[in-house]
């Protein structure tokens, strides 16, 4: 039965759309955006959204490694392109401030009806396509060449490989340390959407589900928003790639977010009154799309989907995204 699923176009469409819609619904309910998560630490000293991220990460680390150990998916470690990861992550972190949302944040706000985010997604798609299959792909080829790639024993490095311990020992230590921090964290005040423990738990489970659901109908890739955004533009314009799970997953995100927002009475077409802000958001999108192609993925792909495999490269990307975000937040909002 599982083999026939692999051939089924309908199963691919349904599983993709369902995963994306559930993810989009959750993003909207939890107002889950990593631009918010990282920025608020610095700007308002508020950790609410960051706590949701850490909880999602812990759950996806445990869940994804269980999937690997049960043989349901294969472990796939992102390469440690130290230069590309640093530059891409940092620029991505700057871009999300201008775009008014991270990869996932921008996509779910499209479903809420925020026109600025729609403009940002367009910028993202155009530059990411140019930087991956267009004329700018030489930059990523240069930055991601072997000279700037670190391997340990001919393999992409992982956290457990680095400390030379069994991966479950590393997972237990990480889960215990961050779990205690989360347990002592403040309960949220003034929450209108889902509280951070609910949001974090559901996002974590959906990251795990995404790995599994994509593996049923094609290559296991999990939830990713950058390469799939390129596909949604390149498919109608230049006819590649073949329709895949990821493209339908991505279409599902704004749909799920729209349903959620509609039910809450939060869906309406709206946008900033100053025209210059659309340009800013478009520019932010351009920067994000270009950057994500250097860093090998956006904040969801690197920060959750692949960090759950304990890839060291993914950890580097997310740390540089935070740094880039904080640099810009300081520059724009805290300098005086």
């Amino acid at each position: 039965m599982l083999e026939s699923l692999q051939e089924s176009f309908a199963a691919m469409v349904i599983l993709g759309l369902f995963t994306g819609a559930a993810f989009g619904f959750t993003l909207q309910r939890g107002r889950f955006c990593m631009n918010t998560a990282f920025r608020d630490i610095l700007l308002t000293k508020d950790f609410t959204t960051f706590q949701a991220y850490i909880l999602a990460l812990l759950i996806s680390i445990v869940g994804v490694n269980l999937l690997v150990d049960f043989g349901l998916i294969e472990s796939e470690i992102k390469p440690f392109n130290w230069l590309a990861n640093a530059i891409g992550g940092y620029l991505f972190g700057i871009g999300i401030v201008f775009a008014g949302g991270c990869g996932s944040g921008t996509w779910y706000r499209v479903g809420e009806g925020l026109v600025g985010s729609m403009v940002a997604v367009l910028g993202f798609a155009i530059s990411a396509m140019a930087a991956s299959i267009g004329k700018l792909d030489f930059i990523r080829k240069y930055l991601r060449q072997e000279d700037f790639t670190i391997q340990i024993n001919d393999q992409a490095p992982t956290l457990h490989g680095l400390v030379g311990a069994n991966k479950w020992i590393v997972i237990a230590v990480i889960t215990a340390a961050l779990g205690i921090w989360l347990f002592r964290a403040q309960r949220p005040a003034h929450q209108k959407g889902w509280t951070w423990p609910v949001t974090g738990a559901v996002i974590g489970l959906l990251i795990v589900f995404g790995w599994w659901s994509s593996s049923l109908v094609g290559k296991a890739e999990g939830i990713t928003l950058a390469s799939t955004t390129v596909s949604l533009l390149s498919y109608p314009t230049v006819g590649i790639p073949k329709p895949n799970w990821g493209m339908f997953m991505l279409i599902g995100i704004p749909l799920g977010a729209f349903v959620s927002a509609r039910l809450l009475g939060e869906a309406k077409l709206r946008g900033p009154s100053e025209p210059s802000r659309y340009l800013k958001q478009f520019g932010g999108g351009l920067l994000m799309g270009f950057a994500a192609m250097q860093s090998g993925g956006c904040n969801i792909n690197q920060g959750l989907t692949n960090l759950s495999m304990l890839s060291l490269g993914s950890l580097e990307v997310i740390l540089f995204i935070i740094l880039g975000n904080w640099t810009m937040v300081w520059f724009l909002f805290l300098r005086d």
């Binding site: 107002r31 308002t44 000293k45 925020l114 005040a189 003034h190 929450q191 959407g193 809450l264 309406k268």
Partner: peptide, 16 residues
């Protein structure tokens, strides 16, 4: 305002 997260962010900031 018309942005959902603001309904949580402003009160949290104000109380702090």
């Amino acid at each position: 305002f018309d942005y959902p997260l603001t309904a949580e962010e402003i009160p949290r900031w104000a109380e702090k």
